[in-house]
Design a protein around this nucleic acid. Structure first.
Length: 664
DNA sequence: GTTAGGG
DNA sequence: CCCTAAC
């Protein structure tokens, strides 16, 4: 009685750490931070523009920025106009204003427009949805780099992908050179994605019935409509199906783990036509996501162990006219087709095939080339930036790129095989067919643009680009906290640690001064990435796969005192009561913990001080432990309720007042 | 859900 | 701290 009273009057509250979430919750949080897996980087439009511009500008001065810009603008306008003709309903002029294109905000502005027209949009979404999936837009992932004098001058850039890039020229470039993820280089760079990014991107062209084909069937028609669907309804269903396939692939193939970001799609108005697929994605993919997440890593690593991903966004072709064998199209561009290469690809899924007669019909929606970096002076105009990009892309398309064919994650190297022999005829295989764009970098110079040599030695081996992709692919989405980071993100940041702050420090050996005058597109050197990608991630995940072990929280002396106090009163064997009495508010201490602690206390008290580890427990407390232990061992401890007055206490054990440990 | 005990 | 048998 007295004791009890005492307990309540003497409550000790100490800094109890924030209680951890229940194990179930902890387990669930393993993969909750997934990067947006849809950060695709279609280059088709860019390529098209590049080709067009190149062609148009060949006769004129290539150095005339204004001219190029105007051409681009004009070209865009033409395209828009042209596309508008296919639109049933009028579009807001401002959205089509190519000025936005000039501002590199084209997409973003379009998003707004999409929203504005949302109501109308929805009414006919079904009708137009068939385009949504296949429509890709513009290029992204190009980070403009300035070479102006002021390295520290902040630069902000909204790339066409809607990604806002901020940072200093120097910092961005440095990071890029080192293969560091600018997106996560928290101290300097910020990437922001518009909420409606992907859908809107897809939307733009879809709404205008512009199905972009990266490489037009002929050079004069860069924008051939490749995905026109003659049967809307059919198409619609088809896309839903494709969407599912795509989702499955996305989930199982490692590439894009976007489940957590589904929210974005759900609320994005996306809908701008993309609804059916997105919804499907959300509902199905999300659940599958959970199912897949446990073995995703394994699968990813296994599947892409020797391959990587460069591309994505492939295609879903409508039935009617996409009979442009991608390869042949590319071949028209004089791009060497060399399947023996590395990589691999695809985010699977998106290759759609229609087997009709003896022809295999498929189209590629887009490719991704995330490792291109462009360095331009800070004082460069947007127009010149665009030109630079176009030039770079064109150069790469022209000579530094090769195509890889990947089926079920395996590269098809034998160019001599027929589609039939390669199994590229059956529906199933076609759905698992992917194409990759791989840099042909035996000669690094090939990939560079401009007169200056590359700043740094780019990859010597084609595999390097691939490696980057692999790293990305294997990592994206696995990491927590990625949030809005685009796929461009390099895995290395996360591999080392989820914390965005833990950006791997790479040797500062890269000469910064290399960059200033160089306008180049440089494949990312990936040397550092592979090791990073390989090891830590698995370990980390392995552990988290099985319920994360609780953080070790050694008992403080205060806690020990409270525990001893409670046990003196209640005896052993009543751990729940002990918990409630002395640790009720210490959520991180379970009665099992208390029991365990008592066990160790008894042990500790019985060994020599030299053998003890950790924070020393006052001897008097240990004496009490031994006394109580002895006492309750004899009294069978569980006697109810009555507290035995007698648990012998150490001589100087203070009072009979209890100690209550509080927690948060 | 608790308790007890091994790991 | 974890795991689990036993209650």
């Amino acid at each position: 009685m007295v004791l009890k009273k005492g307990f309540q009057s003497r409550m000790v509250s100490f800094d109890a750490p924030v209680p951890r979430a229940p194990r179930s919750a902890r387990r669930r949080s393993r993969h909750n931070k997934i990067s947006d897996g849809k950060h695709h980087c279609p280059i088709e439009l860019l390529a098209s523009l590049a080709g067009k511009l190149l062609q148009e500008n060949e006769s004129s001065s290539a150095s005339n920025n204004a001219s190029d810009e105007n051409n681009l603008l004009a070209f865009c306008k033409d395209r828009v106009k042209e596309e508008r003709q296919h639109v049933d309903k009028p579009l807001k002029v401002e959205s089509l204003e190519l000025g936005s294109c000039e501002e590199s905000n084209f997409v973003v502005q379009h998003e707004l427009e999409c929203k504005d027209q949302q109501p109308k949009q929805e009414s006919q979404s079904k009708d137009e949805s068939d385009h949504s999936v296949e429509c890709t837009s513009v290029i992204s992932d190009f980070v403009p780099l300035d070479k102006g004098k002021s390295d520290t001058k902040p630069m902000v850039f909204n790339n066409v992908d809607g990604i806002r890039v901020e940072g200093t020229r120097k910092s961005i470039f440095k990071d890029l050179l080192r293969g560091r993820n600018v997106a996560t280089n928290n101290d300097r760079i910020k990437l922001q994605k518009p909420s409606c990014r992907d859908p809107s991107r897809m939307t733009y062209f879809s709404r205008h019935r512009t199905d972009i084909n990266l490489f037009g069937r002929d050079d004069d028609e860069k924008f051939s409509r490749m995905n026109k669907c003659s049967n809307r309804l059919k198409s619609f269903r088809y896309h839903q199906r494709v969407g599912d396939h795509r989702i499955r692939k996305l989930l199982s193939s490692k590439c894009w783990r976007a489940a957590p970001k589904l929210k974005d799609y759900e609320f994005s108005k996306s809908d701008c036509n993309a609804k059916p697929m997105l919804i499907s994605y959300k509902r199905k993919a999300f659940h599958k996501w959970e199912r897949y997440q446990d073995d995703c890593l394994y699968k990813k690593r296994k599947l892409f162990d020797r391959s990587s991903i460069v591309t994505t966004d492939v295609v879903v072709s409508g039935e009617s006219n996409s009979n442009l064998p991608t390869k042949s199209v590319i071949a028209d561009k004089d791009v060497p087709v060399e399947e023996g290469g590395t990589s691999a690809s695809i985010s699977g899924s998106q290759a759609a095939l229609h087997v009709k007669d003896t022809n295999v019909k498929l189209s590629i929606k887009s490719f991704k080339i995330p490792e291109l970096f462009i360095d331009v002076p800070q004082t460069a105009t947007v127009g010149s930036l665009k030109r630079t990009i176009i030039e770079a892309i064109t150069a790469i398309l022209g000579s530094g790129l090769r195509v890889g064919v990947v089926l079920h994650g395996k590269k098809i190297r034998d160019d001599g095989r027929t589609l039939l022999q390669s199994g590229l005829c059956c529906q199933e295989n076609l759905e698992n067919l992917g194409f990759t764009l791989e840099p042909t970098l035996e000669n690094p110079q090939q990939a560079t643009v401009g007169e200056n040599p590359p700043l740094m030695a780019p990859c010597d081996a084609p595999n390097q680009l691939t490696s980057v992709c692999e790293a990305i692919g294997s990592e994206i989405g696995v990491l927590d906290g990625v949030g809005d980071q685009p796929l461009l993100t390099h895995a290395s940041d996360h591999i080392v640690d989820n914390t965005p702050d833990n950006v791997p420090i790479l040797p500062d050996s890269l000469p910064d001064n290399n960059s200033p005058d160089c306008t180049a597109i440089i494949p990312l050197p990936v040397v550092h990435m592979e090791p990073l990608a390989a090891v830590p991630i698995n370990q980390k995940n392995k552990r988290s796969e099985l319920s994360q072990r609780r953080i070790r929280r050694p008992f403080s002396v205060t806690e020990v005192e409270a525990l001893v106090q409670a046990i003196e009163e209640l005896g052993t064997g009543r751990w729940r009561d002990v918990k409630l009495r002395a640790f009720e508010n210490a959520d991180h201490r379970t009665y099992v913990d208390l029991k365990d602690k008592w066990k160790t206390l008894v042990h500790t008290a019985s060994i020599s001080p030299q053998q003890r580890r950790g924070e020393p427990v006052p001897q008097d407390l240990l004496d009490r432990v031994l006394s109580a232990h002895a006492y309750w061992s004899q009294h069978q401890g569980k006697q109810h309720g009555k507290h035995l007055p007698g648990p012998p206490k150490a001589a100087n054990s203070s009072t009979d007042e209890g100690i209550r440990v509080g927690g948060t």
